[in-house]
Computed example of a mutant assay.
Amino acid sequence: MTTLKYFPADELTAFATRIFTGTGMTDADAAVIARDLVKANLRGIDSHGVSRIPMYVERLQRGLVNPRPNVGVEKVAGAVSIVDGDNGMGFIASHKAMDEAVSLASQNGIGLVGVHRSTHFGMGALYALQAIEAGYISMIFTNSSPAIPMWGGRTTFLGASPIAAGIPGGKHAPYVMDMAMTVIARGKIRLAAMKGEAIPEGLALDIEGNPTTDAAKAFEGVCLPFGGVKGSVLATLMDLMSGVLTGANFGGDVKSLYFDHSEPQNVGHLFFAIKPDLFMSLENFEARMDEYYERIKALPAAAGVTEIMMPGEPEQRREEERLKTGVPITANVVSDLTNEGERFGIALPQGRSEGEVS
């Protein structure tokens, strides 16, 4: 049984902020990344949360990530801009890109922003939620380091390359989608490997191309695309649109976060922002979203299902719960964070044991 400790989100955020400031980042940028990582934990996407701090810190300290990037924005067409991430943390370039996409959409109805010379940008839903908060529909594409084969191949070529999207709701929960092109997010396999847990069959192959349930072997090997050829085709689209189109690395050239310390990643992203009232009034759009939500809730549930939810609603509820109980962190991640904090002279908050959480 995995031992958990629970940490208040604000204390965990403050700890992470100090860690990133210790790498030479500005206070403002460090706070953004800390909030984003804890946000992932709050929503239950623990694979993209604070467990990644040691890996990010290592890349910063190796000089593979620029702690103080000069993120540039250049308008290239009426509703289109390109962002140069200057090899900084992908979170910073991506928030700036979504801000630019929203600004362009406010003027033109739609905004499109490409990003190159970026790095891993964390949980894709961060940017869908950012657009929703501004009142805009969004789609987010990214490529990533090789994780899955091209359909018919046996070696990694395509990234897990998630797609995310958000649509504001009316009085009910918005639509929020964030999914990788793998059967399971590669970060979740990494987390299982860190815990020493097995993974189900059908998720990955080992380095020799054999099916495996060993998470450590799977992480070193090949993840499988969801839906077979369909997942592979979608991952190809993400690579073409995020990598080829934007001027970033593509076709297997994005450097691995974990195994390749030879040079910066040069990840590419693509952000779309769309005004929700292009074809009708905002009031009418919101009413239609509410009606859609209510129709979902009225659908007959399958056996064993107590409630049908809008995509993103389970994560929203989990966030509300974890804001009360604290963020659950496994013992091995607690150990990693404690060690990371000691390197910078920063104490990890004490947290509470499972028995102390009501």
Rank of each mutant, 00 (worst) to 15 (best):
Y56E: 06
T142W: 06
Y258H: 13
D206R: 04
I137K: 00
Y136H: 13
A180H: 08
V334I: 12
A14G: 13
D178H: 04
P311K: 04
D277M: 09
T325A: 08
V83M: 00
E286F: 08
D290G: 00
A9P: 00
N266L: 06
N66F: 08
G243C: 10
A40E: 03
I189L: 02
A79H: 13
N70F: 10
G90L: 00
A273K: 04
E354V: 13
F226T: 12
P146H: 06
G124Q: 04
I82H: 09
T119K: 02
V83W: 05
F7A: 06
E11N: 11
M139Q: 07
G153Y: 03
G231F: 02
L337K: 06
K324H: 13
R190K: 15
I308R: 13
F250Q: 06
V65A: 06
L104F: 08
G111K: 02
G166L: 00
L104S: 04
L4M: 11
G88E: 10
D206N: 14
A298S: 15
N284Q: 15
V334G: 00
L224I: 10
V229F: 07
K188T: 11
R295E: 12
K96M: 12
G243F: 09
A125E: 04
S242C: 11
S144T: 14
R154V: 13
P149H: 05
A273R: 07
G166W: 03
I184W: 07
P69L: 12
I33H: 01
E340S: 07
V233T: 12
I274P: 03
P276N: 11
V244C: 03
Y6W: 15
I163R: 04
V183D: 00
R352T: 11
D260S: 05
P349V: 09
F285D: 02
R52Y: 11
M25F: 11
A165F: 10
T23P: 04
M194Q: 15
D84N: 15
G228V: 06
K297E: 14
V327D: 08
T3M: 08
A302Y: 09
A105N: 05
L299A: 14
Y127Q: 05
A347K: 12
R62N: 11
F219Y: 09
K96W: 04
I346S: 03
V222P: 01
L257K: 01
R62I: 08
V333R: 00
P8F: 04
